[in-house]
Design a protein around this nucleic acid. Structure first.
Lengths: 163, 163
DNA sequence: CCGCTATAGTTCAAGCTTGAAGTTAAACGT
DNA sequence: ACGTTTAACTTCAAGCTTGAACTATAGCGG
């Protein structure tokens, strides 16, 4: 592709890195979704929601906090929690101290589901991501990912924990 | 999250890397989509389709090859090319030597659109990805991305070029 | 040559996501 | 105390994506 009056085009090393990054960003989510769908009937996003609740003190979080944890907008979370509620893995209640707030809670069944699902998922993450990398590369990846996140959103404090 | 009889749990460094990776994989596509949508009214996928055609010898590719380049399934590509055709940026014709094959071609308007759009997009990629990284990290990222892609699909020859 | 299978795309239906509008509850100002 | 504004969700409509079914063309075996 020829350059039309723009100085800062990508050089060869950057193009290669870009190719590798885009390929990874497209395939890794698909691969993880496929494993979860096959083994547990869950999308990765649904899994993240259950995992988020499981890490909260009483297996309960406000919808907003859960959305923030799962890096999603509220309407999407509302839909998904609705589905998870129908399947019996999450329940919703409104906060007695503030009626605007909805609290989502992981049920016993939801916890059970997660306990059954998590090992296989973590195993897949390990197989696809960490097994192919050296320990040094794992640390490099952390730094690289953080730098890019900071470039996208300098404000964000990324205090979430995860998976 | 407690471990239920599974030895290969993620250690602390791996968790941090995983967090950084997931965060990046969720936000970077959104950020790039937002820039393209705002400045050009294109999704990143539509941009990739135009870019793919622009790099082909006669600005023409078979649908299957284009799908492979853009890492998408055929039905999705078919829809998107339909939209791009309506906007006048791509045209379709069936291969005279094999009626099953559909050839997609970038029009003059499409090329013009891409020439107007590419610099801003590349600039955004540079700002969000390469400016925050050192040259060494760029090379590290290439290797890391390739290793993960190879773990996902050992067959794949990744002979695509891009953006 | 003629039917069968395989290939390349398209179309269709269902589900998911996104942004806008609507709802309910709290907080604030006068 | 009452109206207005803000906040937290939910619901709705539109668009996109995915997988399944469908169409049309080419290749192959007898």
């Amino acid at each position: 592709m020829e350059a039309p009056l723009e100085p800062r085009w990508l050089n060869s090393e950057e193009s290669q890195a870009w190719l590798a990054l885009v390929g990874m960003m497209i395939r890794l989510p698909s691969a993880l979704d496929a494993q979860l769908q096959r083994d547990a009937g869950l999308s990765h996003f649904e899994y993240q929601v259950l995992a988020g609740l499981s890490e909260a003190p009483t297996h309960t979080l406000r919808m907003s906090d859960l959305a923030n944890f799962a890096e999603s907008a509220l309407p999407r979370l509302s839909q998904v929690v609705g589905r998870l509620e129908k399947r019996g893995w999450v329940s919703r209640s409104s906060d007695p101290t503030d009626g605007r707030i909805t609290l989502a809670t992981l049920t016993a069944d939801g916890w059970e589901k997660l306990v059954q699902t998590a090992p296989g998922h973590v195993e897949e993450v390990r197989t696809l991501v960490f097994d192919p990398l050296t320990k040094v590369q794992t640390r490099q990846l952390t730094d690289i990912g953080r730098r890019i996140m900071r470039a996208i959103d300098p404000e964000d404090r990324c205090l979430r924990s995860s998976d």
